[in-house]
Design a protein around this nucleic acid. Structure first.
Lengths: 208, 208
DNA sequence: CCTACCGATCGGTAGG
DNA sequence: CCTACCGATCGGTAGG
């Protein structure tokens, strides 16, 4: 658990390369080159390429889960808790040291056991979102025909952020979280229209 | 442009494998094995592995763009046009013959020229969404503080569908499109709350 | 479409 | 951490 500096450097290089070219598209020699080492020298610090991938995925997964647990430990109404979950998710996903893109995309290259562990972790994590939406619906604050679908919709939107996010840009993760929370809670229809009256033909697109 | 049956079989096998394990994680011999061929035999039908990837990406890209153009050619109010764009996107992304996951994830393995072509196509495609949202805002139907951000949010949510969608399941693409359009237009807050009055403390999460 | 092969590169190890 | 190497596999080709 406590790793040497060199080990951390190797993990960081691997994280950058796995993010950019994927696990299968990155060779051990690619990683070594980033640190001016020979390919074989990496094995003084790590046991295998897959262990390196696992380390990165485990770390990101832990942060997702710990952050969400922190949010859910605080009593608050459903909208606030949802905002907290969204902000946590976007902080993890935009943290340049966490390589969330690797967590999200490269887990399929893990061994079967580790893959199962990741899927379990993702299920647990999603459960927090399901709980908050269900609470909000029970309280009458939210109106959600299919909670599972709404959670997949939201998490997909959040997971798209690392694709275009650049650290140091004009949008801080917390600001994106504010915008995304509003989009998810209120949508884009102007309030008067959303309130129900004055819409030309039903909802404009027969549904639900 | 007109391809032999064999060529189409090779493309389909490549699409399936590239979707599942990625371009770099799939070998030509993997593809050949699916068709009970020897690896070298593929080169009687295709020139290179990258050409195979390009073919799949080009085809999906064309369907995204053609479908959107069809929607935008019909006059309708912004909510209806948006619904049409969403339905088209989800039809493309769930079409088992189009391998949209390859289009979305594997373009980074293309040559620089082809990569640039894909990015241009994506820009053009996103432009349609930006246009519809901008029209809706100008008409007073939509209220969107940052149109570009809202489009990225929506497209990310849509691109997440192929990750969990299974053909033959209980949700048709058109049904998902209905749900997702509602989520994007109206959010999840109950109308009375969304209309502005009766919310305990501002919006519950200070924003925008 | 197969057999047989090309040079290059892969993850990983031995021995220092 | 390097040199030197292992067997396996890679994308692709020649010649039939």
């Amino acid at each position: 658990m406590v790793h040497s500096d060199r080990r951390r450097q190797i993990e960081a290089a691997a994280g950058r390369l796995f993010s950019r070219r994927g696990y299968a598209g990155t060779s051990m020699r690619d990683i070594a080159r980033e640190l001016d080492l020979q390919g074989g020298s990496l094995y003084a610090h790590i046991a295998s390429k897959e262990d390196l991938l696992w380390e990165l995925i485990e770390e990101a997964g832990r942060r997702f889960l710990d952050g969400a647990a922190g949010v859910l430990a605080v009593p608050a109404d459903p909208s606030e808790r949802l905002h907290g979950l969204i902000r946590n998710h976007l902080e993890v996903v935009t943290d340049p040291d966490l390589f969330a893109a690797v967590f999200l995309e490269e887990w399929k290259f893990l061994s079967e056991e580790r893959r199962a562990e990741v899927l379990q972790l993702r299920d647990d994590y999603e459960w927090g979102f399901v709980q908050v939406l269900t609470e909000g619906a029970a309280a009458g604050t939210f109106e959600i025909p299919d909670v599972g679908l709404a959670v997949r919709y939201l998490l997909s939107a959040l997971n798209g952020v690392p694709v275009w996010y650049r650290p140091g840009g004009s949008l801080e993760p917390a600001t994106i979280a504010d915008h995304y929370t509003d989009l998810f809670l209120s949508g884009i229809l102007t309030p008067a229209v959303a309130a129900g009256e004055s819409m030309h033909e039903g909802a404009g697109h027969g549904t639900v």
